[in-house]
């Protein structure tokens, strides 16, 4: 089992930390293997921020993600830039208020969440990345919930722990509810133009 993932958004959304939490969960709390790489460059400030993860039950040899099983896009720019890297039939998880979809999402399984709004409801916009991590775990099942929660505990300062665990739960629940509506709902809800693949 080898999965290639990318989490992308704009600087300040915490996408690197989100990838870090997932990678740590897999390699330390699940006993699997995870290799995280980041895109470095002048565009990293203010513009696109992105981190890729290769996770596997075997040691990871090739370090880069080249054919994504899952793209988590948290900005429109991130979506446009990275959606061509998603493999046919791969998954696309989006911050649905920030990412307008187009034809490029047609053959993907798309799941949306208003992560920023949910974060604001919890009282702090900055936890949207952890909401996304919870959502990711629920939808993809690639990272086990308990391992991810342990990893959240490792990664955030103690005074923000409760808030972050709540954020994780919120994202996770949202994902579970979305899945309960049936696998096709994601696409319909996100109104991907043309026929979406189930």
């Amino acid at each position: 089992m080898l999965k290639e993932l990318r989490i992308a958004g704009f600087g300040g959304q915490g996408v690197i930390l989100a990838a870090h939490i997932l990678g740590r969960a897999v390699s330390i709390h699940e006993g699997g293997y995870a290799t995280m790489t980041q895109n470095y460059g002048p565009e990293a400030r203010g513009g696109a921020a992105s981190a890729a993860l290769v996770v596997s039950d075997q040691p990871v040899l090739y370090p880069y993600a080249v054919s994504l099983d899952v793209l988590v896009a948290m900005s429109s720019e991130a979506y446009t830039r990275f959606v061509p890297e998603v493999r046919e039939g791969g998954m696309l998880l989006v911050e649905e208020d920030l990412v307008p979809l187009d034809q490029k999402a047609q053959h993907l399984r798309v799941y949306g969440i208003p992560a920023t709004r949910l974060a604001e409801e919890l009282g702090k916009k900055m936890v949207l990345n952890v909401i996304m991590v919870g959502f990711f775990c629920a939808i993809t099942g690639i990272v086990v919930r308990d391992a991810a929660m342990k990893s959240v505990k490792d990664a955030v300062p103690a005074r923000f722990l409760d808030l972050n665990l709540k954020a994780f739960e919120r994202g996770y629940e949202y994902g579970v509810e979305l899945l309960a509506k049936g696998p096709a709902k994601g696409e319909q809800q996100m109104a991907v133009p043309q026929e979406a693949e189930v």
């Binding site: 870090h20 990678g23 330390i28 293997y33 995870a34 995280m36 790489t37 980041q38 990871v60 370090p63």
Partner: peptide, 9 residues
């Protein structure tokens, strides 16, 4: 650079 910036256990 790859090994330096790569994050693993």
């Amino acid at each position: 650079e790859c090994v330096g910036h790569m994050t693993e256990k």
